[in-house]
Computed example of a mutant assay.
Amino acid sequence: MPFPDAVTVQVRDQSLNLLGVVSDFTSLTLKPRFNDVGTFVLSIAADSAKAALLLPGNGLVIRRGSKVLMSGPIREPNWDSGQGRGTLTVNGVDDMALLAGTACWPKPTAAANAQTDPVYKISAVVAETAMRALVNLNIGPGAQAARKISNLTLASDGLHGPTITKQVNQFDNLLTVLQDIGKTAGLGFRIVQVGSNLQFQVYEPADLSATAKFSFALGNLTSASYSVTAPTCTKAIVVAGGETTARVVKDYTRADPAFPGPWIEQFVDKTDVDSTVADRDAQMDQAADEALTAGAAQVALSITPIDTPFLQFGRDYTVGDKVSCQVRDDFLSDVVREVEIGFSAQDGYVAKAAIGSPDATDKNDPDAAYTAYFKQLFNRMRRAETRKPS
């Protein structure tokens, strides 16, 4: 089975110049993720003329037609002797890894020894504008020379999303901060190669639930599994002040009608916020919104779709878009969180999509649970470290 609709694998150098096309790979797997770092794995005969291009420092640009499915650096080449000269397999990540490897400085344009502020303040700014500013000032065109990624640009500001007020603790991870804003604002973001540059883009995911439908009856679905995880937070208890100013406590409730019963409280520590500042309530509101969104019931739908002439990944829908899938007698609509696409001479083209709430597919993964726990613990420690001494 051929790889559908002209999937092209290009190799780029460190300056993002295109060096050639790899058309003789033996297998390719890529996993684009919504608002997260994607991955790719490519295997090729070690004696291929193109194998010499697949070196750390270079990268891949993977297209379907004119659309870039993924671009990113090669991280791990591996050679296996096998038959003949063997097989070269390279692993890599997409360019979103730039965000995952960046900390948010409280004074982004100042030197390291001037980072004395405990927080970076976002005050009554449209969500997309705030997200662009965080990238621009930390690693984009507006960053100091030592931190600037010279070939990173920003797409124009579409002013998407609501107005937000938020404090970012010093050295919080940039990707995590953007994910938190994106979840509550309903926005997607990505970094992808455009021409000879990388571009940070913020966008509103498309609602394709009326047109992008999957079902066995339509002939574009081979398997599906569905699960729901109960909420972990339906009432956020937000506490501000208490260090040098009086403590203020507010509670926020977001009931889930599918899970009636007593509320589930969660303490949200905003004691780093001075309770006398004018935007205290806005910051508490934002913190509560993020906690309630993260703690809402998780819906997970895993499907194995079939590309048809009428509906194809990368052409008609992509990660972040809302699609519909028939579950028993009804169609369930939700966001495509990730798609794992594989091609090999033996198995042909295979795609598997995860649809549903953020991180829903990891709820039953013990490693993911530990990661979430330690992330929460780290954030609490970071907040404690950034408080002003009494």
Score class of each variant (00 low, 15 high):
A282E: 14
Q266R: 13
V239Q: 11
P260T: 06
D272M: 07
D269F: 11
L292N: 00
A288L: 02
A246M: 06
A291W: 00
Y252H: 03
D289M: 09
I264K: 15
P257I: 06
P262A: 14
A300E: 09
A291M: 05
D269V: 09
T276C: 03
G261W: 12
E290Y: 01
F259S: 06
P262G: 07
R280N: 14
G242S: 11
G261T: 10
T245A: 14
T276N: 13
V248H: 04
G241W: 05
R247A: 15
I237T: 11
D285V: 07
V268F: 03
A258N: 15
V249E: 15
D269L: 09
Y252D: 02
V239A: 07
A294H: 03
G261N: 11
E290M: 12
V239G: 04
T276Y: 11
V277A: 09
A294M: 03
Q286R: 13
V238Y: 01
T244N: 13
E265K: 07
D269W: 10
Q266A: 10
G241N: 04
G295Q: 00
G242R: 06
Q286S: 11
E265Y: 09
G295P: 00
D274S: 14
P262L: 08
E243R: 14
D251L: 05
W263R: 11
A288S: 02
Q283C: 10
G241T: 04
I237Y: 02
V239R: 13
V268L: 07
Q286E: 15
V273A: 10
D285W: 06
F267S: 05
I264L: 15
E243D: 12
T244F: 09
A300V: 03
V273P: 03
K250L: 12
V249N: 06
D274I: 04
D279I: 05
Q298T: 05
A287W: 02
Q286F: 12
L301E: 04
E243A: 11
F259T: 05
A255H: 08
D285E: 15
G261I: 08
E290P: 00
T245W: 02
V273T: 14
V248D: 13
V268C: 04
A258Y: 05
V238Q: 03
G242E: 10
F259M: 05
F267G: 01
T245D: 13
D289P: 00
G241D: 08
A246S: 15
K250W: 06
D285H: 07
Q266W: 00
V277E: 14
